[in-house]
Amino acid sequence: MALYTHHLPRWKKDEVEEIKRGIEEHTLVGVVDMYGIPASQVQQIRRNLRGTARVKMARNTLIEHALNELGGSVATLNDHAEGQSALIFTNENPFKLFKLLEKTKTKMAAKPGETAPEDIVIPKGPTSFKPGPIVGELQQVGIPAAIEGGKVKIRETKTVVKKGEVINKKVAEALVKLGVKPMDVGLILQAAYYRETIFTPDLLAIDEEVYANNIVLAAQQAFNLSVNAVIPTRLTVAAIIGKAVSEARNVGVEASIYEKDIVDLIIGRAQREMLAVALAAQGRGFELDEATLK
């Protein structure tokens, strides 16, 4: 397999070896997209991941070399290494890593032409600006700025850009001035190789709540099936008995079967019927006696 590296210069060979070691020494290797992340942010992310995951930046060609040299299923990661990729090594499972990377995302100022990831809202209230051309600049992009008490103030809360809309140059500049950082920036996991399987983001973005809800649903279904199909288990036999008893009581009351256990229920029913008819009769001029009124 050395086939790929024999013609590489020394430093490149070292890089490839380092990548291979990283892959071999960890249970998981992922491909992340670094596009558009400033160096300072990368440092921050590295710090946040320290002890859990290591980011290895390298040229795509070298990554490709390393993966191909290792061969086997890990080489298929190549299909996911596009653009400005880096590798990430960790011993966590891919779901944990995905979540971790979501958490390390930070906010950044928007560049002109970027798409708003959510509604960009400017809250009303005072700003730190002194009166000047800033008022006009803000007003120009639809932000209701005004001068009040020697300060620039936003008169009312305003949504400047809706989610999914492109942020134009003027708006981007205004947002920078206001210190608004609407962009989520972080490592985006494009694929992870873990235990012989490639995981893509659609598989990794799991919602525990959905699983928990499905567990509840499955348990309900099992409970229902057990009771409705009368398959007694320790967990459900009490409910099945309850159902049988309720049904027996219903039949007993409906059919007026005078048995000790339910005669009080039948009395109750008769009493309610009497009251219903009594009230109807009262509405037609029949005076009820005191006992009934009670």
Binding site: S246, E247, R249, N250, V251, V253, E254, A255, S256, I257, Y258, I262, L265, G268, R269
Partner: peptide, 23 residues
């Protein structure tokens, strides 16, 4: 006798599910 007589005119299937009781 009372039981059988009482059930004579009753649709048991219907009565089962009628939840006439609701205590």
């Amino acid at each position: 006798k009372a039981l059988v007589a009482a059930l004579e005119d009753v649709n048991i299937e219907e009565a089962i599910s009628k939840a006439a009781v609701a205590p």
